[in-house]
Design a protein around this nucleic acid. Sequence first.
DNA 1: GGAATGGTGTTGTAATTCCAACATCTTATC
DNA 2: GATAAGATGTTGGAATTACAACACCATTCC
Lengths: 231, 231
Amino acid sequence: MVDQAGIFEKLKDTPLFHKIGYEDFLKMMDCWNAQVKTYLPDETITRSGEADYDFEIVVEGGAFVYQESYFGVRTLLRAKGRGESTTIGTEEFLDDGMHYVIVANGQTMTLVFDGKKVLGACEHPCPFHTQMLANMVVVLRRAHYRMFEHLVHVSKRTTRAKLLSYLSTCQQASHASKFETPFNRQQMADYLCVDRSAMCSELSKMKKAGLIDYDGRWFKIIEHPAEDRLA
Amino acid sequence: MVDQAGIFEKLKDTPLFHKIGYEDFLKMMDCWNAQVKTYLPDETITRSGEADYDFEIVVEGGAFVYQESYFGVRTLLRAKGRGESTTIGTEEFLDDGMHYVIVANGQTMTLVFDGKKVLGACEHPCPFHTQMLANMVVVLRRAHYRMFEHLVHVSKRTTRAKLLSYLSTCQQASHASKFETPFNRQQMADYLCVDRSAMCSELSKMKKAGLIDYDGRWFKIIEHPAEDRLA
DNA sequence: GGAATGGTGTTGTAATTCCAACATCTTATC
DNA sequence: GATAAGATGTTGGAATTACAACACCATTCC
């Protein structure tokens, strides 16, 4: 059994709890009807349509979020890492028309709030309530933008265009002409939704064509490609 | 010149202003240092790096959000419809590492809040502040999930897999075996990032193969495709 | 050292997609 | 009815990708 202080310790450094102190946390636990739940590995935590108004945060362990098709075929959307604490709920809870399943990744402990209270207008607004909502907005915006970047890259029709779109973004983020990618080749191929070997081959061609230069994870974009390849 | 009452009239029915009354609105205008701005068609409203902490809402007109590559090549991310009011800012403002440009779509009027006050903890928390943040979370979550669905479809390697993924989602949302899509063929092809004619051709094959049936925008999924095509 | 492992690059073939062009059908519009 | 415009379906050749198989290199482990 873990006490409230123990739970707070595991959450306090996450972006969602930015500027939330222990006293705020205690009030929150009371005000939002917090409940601690534990799950066995692979146990279903929740699915769309059930308890849509709960707001559940991973305290310990982790969770997988799957999209579920009409026929029950699942596609892995996101992994909530063990010990990463935050926000199953911040990004997925409380909406209609979503079809997902959330499954525990190993032994998992969560904190469940009453979502109606979280998103409802308080008669006696508390500072922590406003702060938590502001934190949620920040966390959501970041995730939203990352996903949009991803979609922009994947939307390109050819492997070359996908690579240029992605590498251009990396270069921008690095603020330098030479930059290092966080992915190895397989991960980069998965991220861009192309075949790894085909991607390697395309990288070779681009190097020979003088478009880019690279060595391992270090890349450099040399020439400005025709606009229509990037657009 | 439009007065505050006129602005409120244009915003009050949007999701972002759910449960926000006129008195709340007036307080908000004061508390968050609201300023009204107008833009000429195609005028740049803002770009990443400039005024990152402002929170700007379209009151009248509209806006295009572009991603901008290292070389200045722009990709259209999103169109904020004329008169649709809400939320340039709700989804894009206040983050680092975003490279975008926002351009007015026709004559446009906006409302600019001080983002630091919007996301900052208030010393004297107001009910409208909490309500607005809760509204932002709802709006963001919805947009986030829609984008995720989009990414799931586009991530599939073949046109057939993209179609099945998309149609499966439509079928789920309709709660019926037969359903109508909101897109015409060209829009559907753009959404799935494939060529229209190739998509039409693939639809024909799928119909002949007995996987689906369709007539115009009406579709029906007949057989469960092999799991590996959908996964 | 030798073997195993994981990351990377190359190649050839089969499959898929893009692209352009055209045919068909429906729906305005006059 | 005649015409135009728009959406949809079809086809064939060129371009691109997926897939499988293998070579190469560095690291790790015994």
